[in-house]
Design a protein around this nucleic acid. Structure first.
Length: 278
DNA sequence: ACGCCCGCCTGTAAGC
DNA sequence: TGCTTACAGGCGGGCG
């Protein structure tokens, strides 16, 4: 599902493909994808005849800058896809928003589970409109920090490492897949307490955060068997072939051959190696 | 105040 | 075979 590497892959494509383009028309079917707007007409009017001037990312959120000064914020949720298309191509099921550009191309938002959303806001109203965006923690790819600062973040709370990594208030952009891969790379269990780490383990964990996310971006993100995540051209990522633990239950650990274990953690699954992760 | 769980959704797949 | 149930998980809200 789209986490930081998948969203960053899409951001880079949008940066190449839609910056400088002018929006000619916007179609919205169903109100749920634009639920922050009281009526969808308002969403459409704020986008029509504006030009896209840039595309940024904050954690798992895309922030599209418009020449009107406003921002189009996009969150893909669990199953949201942004797809480049031509107007004559048939609409995929669950297509909720279609943006047509002056030169003819389209950007389509497809989202079966409807957890994703889009909204337009003025920059100075962003915090009021979407407080969760203002509360996002450090983006580990965009804003590198020292491992000592990271260690201080760990000590500030008393929780388990996987919960800490997935809490968007700490670091922004890590979800269920990458938290498991990061913890494997760091040799740490998902349920270790944030306060139990030695300084060496803190350093190793922070280095793993940065390394895994950059590797995953390099391979265009992860696409699981459900093929929920695809890039702008509809192509899957390649990083799933480099996963060491995620969705690899009962398969041998790449490091020690011990079968990977799957457990329930806070209502979702966690995968780890009982031998390599302590 | 903060850690933890539920509900929101649909498609897929396992289970009876 | 066909219906029911579980699962996938990002995130806000609410509970303890």
């Amino acid at each position: 599902m789209p986490e930081l590497p998948e969203v960053e892959t899409i951001r880079r494509e949008l940066d190449r493909e839609v910056v400088g383009r002018k929006i000619k028309a916007v179609e919205v079917s169903g109100a749920r994808s634009v639920r922050r707007h009281t009526n969808r007409k308002q969403f459409v009017e704020h986008l029509t005849d504006t030009k896209i001037t840039g595309v940024e990312r904050r954690g798992k959120y895309l922030v599209v800058k418009l020449d009107s000064g406003e921002l189009l914020v996009i969150h893909l949720g669990m199953s949201g896809q942004l797809l480049r298309a031509q107007p004559k191509e048939p609409l995929a099921k669950h297509t909720h928003v279609v943006i047509t550009f002056n030169q003819g191309g389209q950007l389509r938002f497809v989202d079966p589970r409807t957890f994703g959303e889009l909204f337009v806001t003025a920059p100075d109203e962003l915090t009021a409109q979407a407080p969760e965006l203002a509360e996002l923690g450090i983006d580990p790819v965009d804003e590198p920090m020292s491992w000592q600062d990271f260690g201080r973040m760990l000590l500030r709370q008393d929780t388990k490492l996987k919960a800490f990594l997935m809490d968007q208030h700490n670091l922004a952009g890590i979800g269920n897949i990458y938290s498991d891969e990061i913890l494997f790379a760091a040799g740490l269990r998902y349920d270790r307490s944030t306060r139990s780490l030695s300084s060496q383990e803190m350093r190793r964990l922070y280095r793993s955060v940065v390394e895994i996310l950059h590797e995953a971006i390099k391979y265009g993100g992860s696409t699981l068997d459900d093929e929920q995540y695809v890039n702008l051209s509809g192509k899957p990522g390649e990083y799933q072939h480099h996963h060491n633990v995620y969705a690899r239950e009962r398969q041998p650990c790449p490091r020690c051959r011990t079968p990977i274990v799957k457990v329930k953690f806070q209502g979702r699954s966690a995968f780890f190696c009982e031998r390599c992760q302590v």
